[in-house]
Simulated scan of single mutants.
Amino acid sequence: MTALGFLYPGHAAEDDYPRIEQLLGSDIRVDVVHTDIGEDAHRVDALYELGEPERLARGVEGLRLAGAETVVWACTSGGFVRGWEGAHEQVRELARAAGTPASSTSFAFVHAAAEVGARRVAVAATYPEDVTGLFTDFLHAGKVEAVAARSAGIVTAAEVGTWGETEILALAREADVPEADAVLLPDTALHTVSHLPALEKHLGKPVLTANQVTVWEALRLTDRRVNAPALGALFTREPIVQA
């Protein structure tokens, strides 16, 4: 049994995680501990506070008791808002607190893009434009070029969590451009797991979504590779060997 641990802020789309656990169809357990969200706002100061090391450390004990072999901070904006170096320090603090390998959804996107060979991507973000810009900056620091970006301008995770396939597909289509190798939907408050096959079918390219890449990142940290076609190209492709 491989036990994966996740720190998820508040309550919005956390039901994606047990759904992923079912779709993995193997000896993998997904444990989620909820952290205090503070102010629910896609605003830089609120997002910075959301990912404070002390706040994350308070959630780690439950994952330790559950026997998690790795811990991932399941919040994209609560990582990239700190910038490349700040997000690295956040993950280092989390690893020290957990006593296990650790990462975050922000880094998961960079690693997942490399996995599917996507050097140029389109970003379909629920965030306001300034927050989306910080995400594209983060991707650039990770050598992933955002050739297009679309912002829905939603302020709260609670509202994002109400979106269904129609809204998600519309945003992804608006963001996509022919030169993008993949489309990224970066908000962990967005329910996307059930919609991955439809998204990839309509867009004709890999689609990377926040909760999907977060679980993939945890598996990567434990050296596990699982073939799960229902979770999209990320879980079916062979690793890309860069020239």
Rank of each mutant, 00 (worst) to 15 (best):
A13Q: 03
A13I: 05
D15W: 04
D16G: 07
R19D: 06
R19F: 00
I20G: 07
Q22G: 12
L23P: 00
G25R: 13
I28F: 01
G38L: 05
G38P: 02
A41T: 00
A41Y: 00
H42Q: 09
D45T: 06
G51W: 02
R55P: 11
G59M: 09
V60Y: 00
G67M: 11
W73I: 00
A74I: 10
C75T: 05
G78F: 04
G79Y: 04
V81A: 04
V81H: 00
Q90T: 03
V91G: 07
E93N: 09
L94P: 00
A95Q: 08
A98M: 05
S103H: 02
T105C: 15
S106G: 14
S106M: 13
F109R: 03
F109V: 07
V110Q: 12
A113K: 02
V116H: 01
V121H: 04
A124Y: 05
T126W: 01
Y127R: 00
V131T: 01
F135Q: 07
L139Y: 08
K143G: 13
V144W: 02
A148N: 13
R150E: 05
S151P: 04
A157L: 02
A158W: 00
E159C: 13
E159D: 15
G161T: 05
T162F: 15
T166V: 15
E167C: 14
L169W: 06
L169P: 02
R173H: 07
R173A: 09
E174C: 08
P178G: 13
P178E: 14
A180P: 05
A180D: 08
D181Y: 01
A182T: 01
L184E: 07
D187V: 00
L190D: 07
V193K: 00
L196V: 13
P197M: 12
A198V: 07
L199C: 10
K201A: 09
G204M: 01
K205R: 11
T209D: 08
Q212V: 12
A218M: 08
V226Q: 11
G232E: 06
A233K: 03
A243P: 15
A243R: 14
